[in-house]
Amino acid sequence: MIINHPLLGPRDSAEFTYMGDAKQIDRPDWQSPNALAQFIDYAYMRDNPAGAHRELWYHEQGDRSFLVVTRDTTTHEIFSVELASDVARIQGRIA
């Protein structure tokens, strides 16, 4: 596969390490009242869609960016590629 890196352009997916569902960005708040249940869902439960899937790819043999790739799991077509840090900030992850 080819992943069109937002900074580096098209790169072979072999340079990347797949890191799973991009929901892993949304790590729960440890102090919320049902934190344990939220963490269980966060760590284990997956939508696992047959279709568009937002997922993390780590450019391990490249610039070490984490990317959020939206890819169709039935055709492997890639719809969008974003820097995960940008996505995380937009999704309101604060330090």
Binding site: D47, N48, A50
Partner: peptide
């Protein structure tokens, strides 16, 4: 499994 159980609105600790 994911696709089928999704029809029962179940999410699973499984990826395909």
């Amino acid at each position: 499994s994911g696709r089928l159980m999704g029809k029962a609105n179940m999410r699973l600790p499984i990826e395909s």
